[in-house]
Write a protein that binds this DNA or RNA. Sequence first.
DNA 1: TATTAGTTAACAATTATTGTTAAAAGTTAA
DNA 2: TTAACTTTTAACAATAATTGTTAACTAATA
Lengths: 154, 154
Amino acid sequence: MKTAVELTQLFRNTGRKVTAQRLCVWRLLEGNTSHPSAEVLFEEARRELETISLRTVYQVLRELEELGECMSLDLGTGASRFDPNVDAAHHHLVCTSCGKVRDLYADFPSVEAPKTGLDGFQVGSAEIVFRGTCAECKSNAGLNGSTRPKALVS
Amino acid sequence: MKTAVELTQLFRNTGRKVTAQRLCVWRLLEGNTSHPSAEVLFEEARRELETISLRTVYQVLRELEELGECMSLDLGTGASRFDPNVDAAHHHLVCTSCGKVRDLYADFPSVEAPKTGLDGFQVGSAEIVFRGTCAECKSNAGLNGSTRPKALVS
DNA sequence: TATTAGTTAACAATTATTGTTAAAAGTTAA
DNA sequence: TTAACTTTTAACAATAATTGTTAACTAATA
Ligand SMILES: [Mn+2]
Ligand SMILES: [Mn+2]
Ligand SMILES: [Zn+2]
Ligand SMILES: [Zn+2]
């Protein structure tokens, strides 16, 4: 999780220009634990930079991913979710009702692919996704019939 | 994992007609451990039923899912993958190179969401996805530069 | 056999994402 | 400050996976 200043260096060092858009997207992502989608970041970004385009947000996110400064998560919520926390190993809780994504910092030492019976499949990583219902959706249960993930409504 | 005969009963009992298409899709899925996509099932189905449409395959898959006879998995490989194994709890190995999906039957007793620190999030299920390289892709490494999942090419 | 459900074709639509192009604007090195 | 070079933007088009739609046709069942 780099600061905006560090990102500036990184952009320069990789031959990229330090633009308001790049900084803005990074600032919105830095330390953000909500795992926003590109759309959500776009909505937030245009509050600061009224003319920023969704296209640019996608481009910057891709770049940040290539630079190893964020990762995109496919959690089955429709859109990719972006996570700036690439350093600390962690897992995710996904609300199947609203699409909210929370971090779960817990070590599961037993989660390691067996050595045998893999038919030569070489395992690189293990992700655990816990699915369930977030507190908010639980208390709203029955009030409305909405099954549509709120976090994804454009 | 029901047999075709059992499925016939299920269709009848739920007021559905027993059609060649429904039976065909189920027959292709029954005991199938390859986690095929709808497209793949469609290609296979039309060998038996030349006139079957992709639309129908999607419809039948949805139905089977509603009936609890299969589940669709979103493993980040582009298309949903269908799994008839809804009874035995298991996890998946996903080849990041070709998109192949293998079952992993292993019990990870420690994988249980902590009771505390969840902010009221109620956890229902835990899926573990192991990502890596399948044997075939490992031996093909470097031969071609293909990063495109072969299993997904239409 | 009549009724009803299911299938097909042939499209349109949707969502998330990437591609494209040209013009405008911004960044940086000199 | 200027010139060169990148980026951004707008305005679309395109893609891939999936679902919606309609009408005609076909098949299953009572
Ligand atoms: Mn996270
Ligand atoms: Mn499986
Ligand atoms: Zn929720
Ligand atoms: Zn592979």
